[in-house]
Design a protein around this nucleic acid. Structure first.
Lengths: 191, 191
DNA sequence: CTAATTTTTGACCTCAAGTTCAAAAACCGT
DNA sequence: ACGGTTTTTGAACTTGAGGTCAAAAATTAG
């Protein structure tokens, strides 16, 4: 019983995620969140406790959807190298095609909140680990399929690719598409 | 004539840089700056105009000293690969050995202020460009000296290395030393 | 010493962020 | 329709950020 919720929590979290992604954690005020979600400030606090807690949900959602996208793109037909290139290119292009270059929420978070928020750092770490796992699995798959050199260490290679990807997303804030694509090409020529 | 300055502006900028680096732009209040520099708030505003302007000076100083360090380390005797490894390792270790993992001020800036501050983005871009130039020069030097493969495109390779370095500094916020060193090893095996 | 000039400083101001809350609204079972 | 329960909401509160300012302090020229 009691008055029913007038909004879908998942939708609110998704909208909040977009806002945090675009404006950063500190840059997003409760008023911004109320406007973005269409839910009054007080109600948001009633449902989510605090700005930080809502952000936690948003980051979690980001990690989940990000992993799903990666999984989807990496698993399409093609060699490991082709699939990784497609995925990296997709991320870079998505960012550059948007109205603002918001980069990666996880990275933005760890850079902005850094060490001051242990919990956030751990959440980001989990997201990165998952990505590395997906990359390693796809490389290993390619190795067994024969399109990746026998001698490649999938785990080590996945780590380097993750570093490259993180770097690309940093550089996507200040460099143009041609440069970023060139980096992808050169980086992938290696393995 | 007039009352003489009671502080060295360069020293104040250096102290401010340390504070911004550790706490971020938004995370650093005028009160923090006054405490860190030993100069009263009002005096800081009198000398530097605004928090943002002081930050500008701090970022400029960061770029300059960073470039000097890179130049110094890269130019010591050894092959290009050895020197790049030494430089990357130095940066990672410096970050991990500090009391807090503050990463790279330039990167933190572009992630935190991102597109909302065009000027900051441009400043960071200049810093990145300079770094890429230094890497490219060192690789080209190695190519001519014979310790780098003839077929390597120094410019393209420098871009990839910059991406790797940026990625390393992001990952240095959440991963441990062993992983980061492993990434350096694998990434450098390539060229 | 005085006048002119420049710095220094903490008090003060304004505004918005982040949060709390009391009252109104919307539901359900009886 | 009433009581119990949960949500919704804007108003209200507290706090600190970012910045301004008037008065005091420190200098030099004359």
């Amino acid at each position: 019983m009691g008055r029913p919720k007038s909004f879908e929590p998942d939708v609110v979290v998704a909208r909040a995620m977009e806002t945090f992604w675009t404006k950063g954690f500190a840059g997003t005020s409760p008023a911004d969140l109320a406007e973005a979600t269409g839910v009054a400030k007080g109600s948001l606090y009633h449902s989510f406790g605090s700005k930080r807690e809502l952000f936690g949900k948003a980051l979690e959602l980001y990690g989940r959807t990000g992993a799903e996208l990666a999984e989807e793109v990496l698993s399409r037909p093609g060699t490991a190298k082709e699939r990784v290139r497609a995925y990296f290119t997709l991320l870079v292009d998505l960012d550059l095609d948007g109205p603002v270059r918001r980069g990666c929420l996880a990275q933005n978070t760890v850079e902005e909140l850094g060490v001051r928020d242990e919990e956030a750092a751990r959440a980001v770490h989990r997201i990165e680990q998952r990505m590395i796992g997906l990359l390693a699995a796809r490389i290993e798959e390619g190795r067994l399929a024969g399109d990746v050199d026998r001698g490649v260490d999938a785990g080590a290679q996945a780590l380097v690719l993750q570093a490259t990807l993180s770097g690309l997303r940093v550089m996507a804030k200040t460099f143009d598409r041609a440069v970023l694509h060139r980096i992808i090409d050169t980086a992938l020529a290696g393995f």
